[in-house]
């Protein structure tokens, strides 16, 4: 939909619109599997990079880069860091993976979140990373190899129907979506129309059902998208709760975010809207993200 359609649900809409017209800065995360934050930042600063760190997190906004693309360095090729938007780092943080667990990333390519999860558990877990597209799986495998995440097993299949032959402690469903939250990074010719939102929404619901099947009792799932339309977000989570059997959990995270949308085009999301969160670009200069935490 046209971004104006979200005027009533996105707070400080004028500021939102203003920031959407500016280029999105790059963010990056140090790959602590290979190097310490202190050492890498010193090396890159020596080369002329300047960073703004988010609090004491492993999340750095690149405010000055001596090369056009900040990944054009030896350090990047050696797997010492990963270029990843701040908003995209939030779903794994909400997932809270632990060492020794079995974790499924259902739509994983190109692997920003998979490799972040691997770093969070110090490469000591079983991480199954799945995607449907061959070309994107190659990119995923390339990133997994570059960062040195040996705990990752890659599978190829349709997240709506694939059987993984095991159950998991945690699942990340970073679902395919219309991507309205990444247009600052990847501009496009036209906005998605209602039909596309509905098409994705249905696909996402099937994926949620399959996630439930693969989660052990008491296990948790993070559902995330990088789009704004409630049909792909709150609506899917409402379905997950009402029809699939998930229980929505409160998300405890210390970043600027908005609560979910309570009502949208005659649909009401009572019971879940105040648990899910929305990260908007005009808060700390990122892309956009929707995140829900659900328990089986």
């Amino acid at each position: 939909m046209k971004i104006e359609a979200y005027k009533d649900i996105i707070p400080d809409f004028e500021e939102f619109r203003r920031i959407m017209a500016t280029p999105q800065p790059y963010w990056m995360r140090v790959n602590t599997l290979k190097i310490s934050e202190k050492d890498l930042i010193a090396r890159l600063e020596n080369k002329g990079f300047r960073f703004e760190r988010y609090r004491d997190w492993n999340a750095y906004m690149i405010v000055e880069s001596p090369v056009k693309h900040p990944g054009a360095t030896f350090e990047h090729s050696l797997g010492y860091y990963y270029i990843q938007d701040f908003a995209s780092m939030i779903p794994p943080i909400v997932l809270k993976p632990r060492k020794g667990e079995r974790i499924l990333d259902m739509a994983a390519a190109p692997g920003s979140k998979t490799t972040q999860i691997a770093a969070m558990v110090d490469d000591s877990a079983t991480i199954v990373a799945n995607d449907i597209r061959d070309d994107r799986i190659r990119a995923l495998a390339g990133n997994v190899e570059r960062v040195g995440a040996t705990s990752v097993i890659i599978t190829r299949g349709d997240a709506r129907a694939k059987r993984f032959g095991m159950t998991f402690d945690r699942i990340l469903l970073d679902a395919p979506c219309t991507g309205e939250g990444v247009v600052r990074k990847t501009p496009r010719k036209r906005e998605p129309d209602l039909r596309e939102h509905i098409k994705f929404s249905k696909m996402q619901m099937r994926m949620v059902e399959n996630a439930y099947r693969h989660l052990k009792d008491g296990g948790v799932m993070v559902y995330s998208t990088c789009t704004y339309n409630p049909l792909e977000n709150e609506h899917v989570v409402q379905y997950a709760v009402d029809e699939v059997g998930f229980v929505p959990l409160q998300i405890d995270i210390d970043i600027p975010y908005e609560r979910g949308v309570r009502e949208w085009r005659e649909r009401s999301f009572e019971g879940i809207w105040d648990k899910v969160i929305r990260v908007y670009p005009h808060r700390i200069n990122t892309g956009g993200m929707f995140i829900a935490l659900l328990k089986k």
Binding site: A125, T126, I137, A141, E145, I153, R156, K162, F164, M166
Partner: peptide
């Protein structure tokens, strides 16, 4: 370093 290998076809197994 994965400890459980799923019993389905896989594309890569670690590195």
């Amino acid at each position: 370093r994965a400890t459980t290998i799923p019993s389905v076809k896989i594309e890569t197994l670690g590195i």
